[in-house]
Structure formats: C-alpha cells, structure tokens
Design a protein around this nucleic acid. Structure first.
Length: 213
DNA sequence: TAGTTGATCGTCT
DNA sequence: GACGATCAACTAA
C-alpha cells in the first residue's frame, strides 16, 4: 500500500519528517486539478544513498489532444509515448540541444496529459544540487526553471518513463497549499494557445522562474 | 535592468 | 531544414 515512509533530514537541523508517497489515484484525476494540487508537494530523487528533495512551487499543464502547445497535440510519436501512459509516470524530453525538462504524466492510460515541473524549492541535498548544476550560484538559481531543476536533480534521458510510485523518483504528500497563495498565468515559452491560463505557481516564492510574474 | 544572442541536437515537417 | 515547454553570458544605457 502507500504507507512506505521516507525519513528526510532537512537542512535546518535534525528534524526528521515522515512523508507518504502519493498514490496512483492522485495522478489519474483531471490534469488541471492535479497541477494545482502538486503545488507544495515534496519531490524526492534518490541517487544511490543521496537524497534530493524539494517543494514544487511552479507547474504548467499540457492537455494533449485538446492543447495546440502540447507535444501530444498531433498524436503519438516515439518521443511523446510516455505521455500516453497511465498517470504517475515521468515524461522527460530533451530540448534546445542541451536541456531536459520533466513532466508528471496525468490521467488514464491513452490520455496524453501531463504537468511540467517549472520550479522547486530545495529542501534536502542542496550541496549535491549545487554540484549537479556546476555553477556557483545563489540558492534560488538552483531550481527556478524547468531545465535548471532537471540539472540540479540529475534528471535526464534515463529517467524518461520512470514510475513515480517507484524508488528512484517519487512525490510525497504535504499540506495542501492554500488557494489564496496559488497564482495563475499563461504558459511560458509557447506562442500559441495564449488563451489558456494553465501555469500555476505559489505567490512570492523565490523559486518561481523569473520570466513572468 | 532590459534586451539580445550563442550554444547545440533531437524531432518532426 | 527549421525550430524548440531554455539558460547564461553578453551588451547597452
């Protein structure tokens, strides 16, 4: 069942918290609902004995065949195959010749919808994240963008298709983010479908990407 | 601080 | 052959 517990040593001392992995049923719900509910949840990445963890603070929804901006708008291809899987998988794609971006697949099998993770607030493994980024940069510059987050969390080709109910990458439940703190906007970096306000982020959080507020 | 550009390659037309 | 769900370094002011 979903009662595996994951102790995390948070950076501010020896506080150890037990988080519960989100169940499959969290991801198979309607995508816009999953997108908003992902705000505040704890994304965990295990690399050997190293644990990286961060709070999701910015996301964008992509609604497959209903959405001209989605990679899956024109149907299934080799690249977007993972988007068509059951909710709770990770869709990682390569872009601009050098960057990876990661999506949480949502909905039932055959429905190609997903939520792009654009910003994360680092909680655990910050030293390793800095090493992964390879830059001496401020802490907010570590994970305040989709490709920065992937680099910090060492997410690439090999993580495409990963099951979020597995051991390598998963998301843990956390207190629901208050509706009053959730902001909405158009999505970043796309030119069509500007009428769809499917970007969601936590107000005044330092790890929301800089491009638009 | 705002705006521009180079990097770099898989995917789809 | 064009371009992208991006980023960092650079320039101008």
């Amino acid at each position: 069942m979903n009662f595996e517990l994951y102790p995390l040593i948070l950076p501010f001392g020896v506080l150890t918290l037990n988080f519960q992995k989100l169940p499959r049923s969290f991801y198979t719900r309607p995508t816009l609902r999953v997108a908003k509910d992902l705000l505040g949840k704890i994304l965990v990445r295990k690399i050997g004995k190293t644990i990286l963890a961060g709070k999701i603070v910015e996301v964008e929804a992509y609604l497959g065949s209903k959405d001209p901006a989605s990679h899956a708008y024109r149907g299934q291809t080799k690249r977007n195959e993972v988007m068509f899987r059951e909710g709770g998988h990770l869709y990682v794609y390569f872009t601009y010749g050098m960057h990876f971006c990661a999506n949480v697949v949502t909905g039932r099998e055959g429905i190609a919808e997903a939520v792009l993770v654009r910003g994360v607030e680092p909680l655990e493994g910050i030293g390793r994240m800095k090493k992964n980024r390879g830059l001496q940069s401020s802490e907010e510059n570590l994970t305040n963008g989709p490709a920065k987050f992937c680099q910090a969390f060492d997410i690439g080709r090999e993580q495409n298709g990963a099951d979020l109910l597995g051991k390598e990458i998963f998301i843990c439940d956390a207190k629901r983010t208050s509706r009053a703190l959730i902001c909405t906007s158009t999505r970043i970096g796309i030119t069509n479908a500007q009428d769809r306000r499917w970007r969601f982020f936590i107000r005044e959080n330092k790890w929301v990407s800089k491009s638009k507020k």
